[in-house]
């Protein structure tokens, strides 16, 4: 129960961060994908089940506030949460490289899927432009902010993780 409450707080906070505060103090028009970071962080720390449940609600929140197709981001986030939850076996607390790589990878996948679904389908073919102007800088920014969010989630759920570690051994 405590876990559910914490997840709820993470998701809501990330959503508000992403849609309000970060859009005002943005760097070069970029906003970090905080909700994605929350999803993959939880997936890594607690596994696929938690990852895809959190992902579903995080994606749904994005869909509700902005998306034109309800459920699209929910689906992408569920996939990402499930997939990166598999890395839970390799999770250990002090490691920072794995979460870094996972956040970067997940954000790249998210951005490329966004491009494919929402831009390529409308005949926007200049992929290299989007890659260098949006995807790479965006991923970079997300990773930098993401590491802090990851650490924050890890610290605030420390008491819940002990059981979790044994569970997946």
């Amino acid at each position: 129960m405590k876990k559910v409450l914490l997840y709820l707080i993470f998701v809501i906070t990330a959503f508000f961060l992403q849609s309000t505060i970060f859009t005002i103090i943005d760097l070069g028009g970029l906003v970090p994908d905080c909700l994605l970071v929350v999803t993959v962080s939880i997936a890594l720390i607690f596994g696929s089940t938690d990852g895809c449940i959190v992902g579903f609600f995080a994606g749904l929140l994005l869909d509700i506030s902005f998306g034109s197709i309800l459920g699209l981001f929910a689906m992408i986030f569920v996939l990402l949460g499930y997939f990166f939850g598999k890395f839970n076996r390799m999770y250990y607390k002090q490691d920072i490289t794995l979460p870094l790589i996972i956040i970067a990878l997940a954000d790249t996948i998210l951005n490329i899927t966004t491009y494919v679904f929402l831009f390529l389908t409308r005949n926007r073919l200049n992929f290299s432009y989007y890659l260098f102007k949006l995807i790479i800088p965006g991923v970079f920014y997300t990773v930098i902010i993401g590491i802090f969010i990851y650490k924050l989630i890890q610290i605030s759920t420390a008491s819940l993780q002990k059981g979790g570690d044994k569970l997946y051994d």
């Binding site: 089940t49 895809c52 579903f56 459920g71 929910a74 689906m75 569920v78 939850g85 997946y168």
Partner: peptide, 22 residues
């Protein structure tokens, strides 16, 4: 729990597919 991860995944995927279709 580990078995149910797949189940949860499948259910949520179906749910989002329904939402998209809707």
């Amino acid at each position: 729990k580990r078995i149910s991860a797949k189940l949860v995944f499948v259910i949520l995927m179906m749910l989002s597919t329904i939402l998209i279709l809707l």
